[in-house]
Amino acid sequence: MNKIDYAIMEIHHLDHEAKKENILTRINPLAKLIITFLYIILLTSIDRYKPQQCIYMCIYLILIKIIGEISMKKCIKRLKVIFTIVLVIGIANPIINRNIVAQIGKIPISSGMISMTTLMIKGCFAIIASYFFIITTGMENFCVALRMIHIPGVLITVILLIYRYIIVFLKEVQRIWTAYSMRAPNQKGVNFKAWGSMIGSLMIRSIDKAGNVYDSMELRGFNPDTFFDKKNGFCEIDLIYFIFSAAVIVVIRYINIFEMIGNVFVFQ
């Protein structure tokens, strides 16, 4: 399997996993969207010199992982590039901020190193939370959630089309690539002279294809104003999920659980 095939398969995998039957995939997408937002906002609001506070926030992720039966191995594999970027961005901190604030053995710890750790943890957790949301919701339901907060149907259609367009585009890349290499068997890669015309025809062809896909959707009764309006309404389970998750997130954010447990033992 070549890289493009693999990429297409990965995109399908996201769709596929969102259709798995478990409690999380059945929850109203808007409830999940708001909870994910809440989590990210509270996570990012943590003081940058308090990495230990950040670590508590993983409790929510662990719960979601267990309830949603999500594979952590696949998650890390898929997100490794983004993780790397987040880690690289964090590295700038210790260079800029060199105040020594503590010492572990003989190793001096600067405030920059602490904020770097916090930033990295925050970044990775936020990405994982978003990934968990998408993988338990799916792109289409994500659009339904957007529609519920009254984002215009046309805009949401664009989002959904871009998502579908990625696959059409990748397929087109694959086709042109194969056609080229069949006729230039002795070359490695694409000759720079052919780049211009190749990218040009790639654009025209994939835009044309995307237009056809939209036509096909319309011919089969697709209407952006009604399509995303189908799964409205919170039911009991959505409400329970919402209250429970919000409570968990607020507790792990504002109450220092481990310290509390520690105190209980000390008093005894």
């Binding site: 399908h12 397929k171 294809k209 056809n212 096909s216 959707m217």
Partner: peptide, 19 residues
Amino acid sequence: DAQLFMPTVHEDVKFALLN
């Protein structure tokens, strides 16, 4: 190729019905 766009066969076939 221009007509089908959903991830799986079954989903593509029922797309119009849901609409």
